[in-house]
Design a protein around this nucleic acid. Sequence first.
DNA 1: TCAAAAGTGTTTAATGTACACCCATGA
DNA 2: TCATGGGTGTACATTAAACACTTTTGA
Lengths: 237, 237
Amino acid sequence: MSSDWEIPAVAVAVDLVVLTVRSARLQVLLVERGIEPYAGKLALPGGFLASEREDVDTAAGRELAEETGLRPENLHLEQLRTYGAPNRDPRRRVIAVAYLAIVPDLPEPTAGGDARSARWVPVSQVLTRRATLAFDHQRILSDGVERARSRLEYSALATAFCPPQFTVADLRNVYEIVWGETLDPRNFHRKVTGVADFLVPTGGHTTKHGGRPAALYRRGTADVLHPPILRSTGGWR
Amino acid sequence: MSSDWEIPAVAVAVDLVVLTVRSARLQVLLVERGIEPYAGKLALPGGFLASEREDVDTAAGRELAEETGLRPENLHLEQLRTYGAPNRDPRRRVIAVAYLAIVPDLPEPTAGGDARSARWVPVSQVLTRRATLAFDHQRILSDGVERARSRLEYSALATAFCPPQFTVADLRNVYEIVWGETLDPRNFHRKVTGVADFLVPTGGHTTKHGGRPAALYRRGTADVLHPPILRSTGGWR
DNA sequence: TCAAAAGTGTTTAATGTACACCCATGA
DNA sequence: TCATGGGTGTACATTAAACACTTTTGA
């Protein structure tokens, strides 16, 4: 804090890791870059602060709304991490504040007000390098996916993948796809309905083909899960 | 990413939550501000990027070294969160990237190369508002303490509070003080020595008054604890 | 030999896992 | 009445909590 030297001024970008479960796979929202650098490459959606006075959290909500057409207050949006390596953008010094967003399976791939070519891409394609991303977005995505996986254990995050009304099987589906492992339907049902304030029965039931109708639930008030839903692999052991 | 408008440039500050266990209390390193705004107030140590090309993580390590006189590579240092509200600094737009550092009980309060009046203050005094901090540093400290508490459960973070050689009782002391609860010495001993690659016996023993000598350990290679050391309160239930 | 702290063994309760079984519907 | 998934009961294994007890030192 010695005064009297020029404080470096940098550009602040907000980048989004938007995840959903779609076609039985964990998918991430990506845009195709139209300009250099990395023109034509896939990248995480994002952008710079809209003004000198825009709050960073607000900017993330704004970007999310632009890309998905959804109001941010209904969706899960949390700060992930800040990436501040000096050369992450070849043009100029840019620091990226990354956010993790979880959305339900949306009706159409993207209805962005910004008219960018956003689309869903399976996370596995990116993590196995069949598709590669611009900047350090591969690393950011990888951090975001790991955060989401671990959040399923201790928080009610899984409900953010689901529509307003969902069944226990829908919820189990989210866990299985995000974690990449199968879970016992009977024990999962008991665990998840036993967690305080996690699920609230709506009274409704599904009217599906081929099976007993399932009770419908909406998300409860709990943010943290007591007790947690632990994965066998990855958690430990 | 529409081009052709002026991208806002902001100043990037790095703020540190440096925690230690000292005199049987969790304490935080604070500086007394010499200049406005908040002159005379206590604040987290920190500063702006040293140059246009300095990495943010590097800046955090540099600040820590300046404040504690210790090499950052031996200490625990992790990014906490970024605080980007537009009015957090009344002078100009500043975004703070906060870091959490854990250090052992240092020989002298501070041996900063920057000759600032850094000193240790019990965390409880700040959280109970007997001492208040400048800017939004109260909130940042609170986030940092909660991060540290939860990291004790799942990571080997507790060893960062200890000197290179320590006993199981030293380690238990860290858990008890940071969590603010008492733990059964017998069960704690068994748990902690049972975790794979957490503790490595050095072969040495303490030669203390009034009790059986304790075996000395150094930290092992494990970063995550299998299984975790869970707190009773706060974890759940 | 006593106090004090380190470390081990054992009992008991809580929790997680596997899986048999019943329920409610559409075809 | 059969196939299909929803949902419950229960036995067993694993883990955590409580605490009696033994070990090893300094005074």
